[in-house]
Nucleic acid binder design. Structure first.
Lengths: 192, 192
DNA sequence: ATTCCCGAGTAGACACTGTCTACGACGGCT
DNA sequence: AGCCGTCGTAGACAGTGTCTACTCGGGAAT
């Protein structure tokens, strides 16, 4: 009847999401998750045959969370694509920096290559949204190429910023100038 | 007298570099490195008090390797900065994609945050070279900001490309168009 | 109503990991 | 000769992921 009691499967993922956001990615031990869910260390195996599949389920939670935030920011019809892209970039960086553990988990090589995550399918709508916005903002260029480079730019800023390399480089403690630099570079200088 | 016999310390790092390039980052077990170096699992502790410090030493080898490649590409005086930046970007992407394990190791959060790696100091010359080149190519902008964004862009392309997200996005199996898109975006369209 | 059975979780074993500590060789001093 | 410090060994310990045998409880079928 109550919500969190709906099956051990969901509870394990809930615990994992909490754990990665509070303690970091190295705390996502199979046994620790089981412990916090109040079951024995063998229990998760019935739902997730391997540790990687449990981690993938947790990471997928983060992907859909991020996708939700982006969707609600860019939801309203055909607004100014440049503004929407700014909001999208801001949302992405904000998510990555306030959920560092989850962001790190979402892009781990072993998860991505295991195939359990299905990031290719999960993140494709976000990418095609980006392609659409870029295509509307700059009809004169190869939208897929520019969108790809812009996505990589956002991702790189999030990554380098989160461990401090870029803050030392740019001096300031604010990532917004970097975001605007990246946007200006790919979309042309902000027209007013 | 012979080269590889110069101390266990160097031999451990040698073994680690080989291992990460052939088997990947998950093979860099303390005990496995010791095994391949022909010593017991307790031996590394005399030179590297913890596993992370050994990994940091291996990663530092990769950083200096990359710095060397970049330095020899951009060594000749004051050539065309745009061409030098193109060569630098190509070298960076090439290194990241042909040494995937090493590249992944070099940018692991736990290594960076442990402080043992010293990436801040190690990679600073590379970044200031980038700032210099960007400043010469575009005297009209904040060079540090653009260089930071460009570095993040290169890093992001390397990362996203290496696990296939971008190849699916751009269709082609070649990363050079993406590299030129990023360079054009930050430096302005190639003059001529 | 009794039997059967199957899904869900437990408990213990196994090989492996990183860290710690006590111990043994070996070589260069005085 | 005796000593001592450096280097490496060997074993213990807690913790990990995976595997397998088992127990328990509640329907379904006869």
């Amino acid at each position: 009847m109550s919500d969190p009691e709906t099956g051990l499967r969901a509870r394990l993922v809930d615990v994992g999401v909490d754990l990665v956001n509070t303690e970091g990615v190295q705390a996502l031990t199979l046994r620790e998750i089981a412990r916090r869910a109040g079951v024995s260390h063998g229990a998760p195996r019935r739902y997730f045959p391997t540790h990687l599949e449990l981690l993938s389920a947790i990471a997928r939670r983060g992907v859909t969370d991020l996708a939700g935030r982006v969707a609600e920011l860019t939801g309203d019809g055909a607004a100014n694509p440049r503004e929407q892209l700014t909001a999208l970039g801001h949302a992405y960086l904000d998510f990555a920096l306030t959920h560092r553990g989850m962001h790190e988990l979402m892009f781990r090589h072993d998860l991505l290559e295991s195939g359990h995550l299905g990031l290719r399918e999960t993140s494709l709508p976000l990418f095609s949204l980006l392609v659409d916005l870029v295509g509307r903002a700059r009809p004169d260029v190869d939208a897929a190429l520019v969108a790809g480079s812009l996505l990589a730019n956002l991702h790189g800023i999030a990554q380098l910023w989160s461990w401090g390399s870029l803050q030392l480089a740019t001096g300031s403690g604010d990532f917004v100038p970097l975001l605007h630099t990246a946007l200006d570079a790919h979309l042309g200088p902000a027209n007013r």
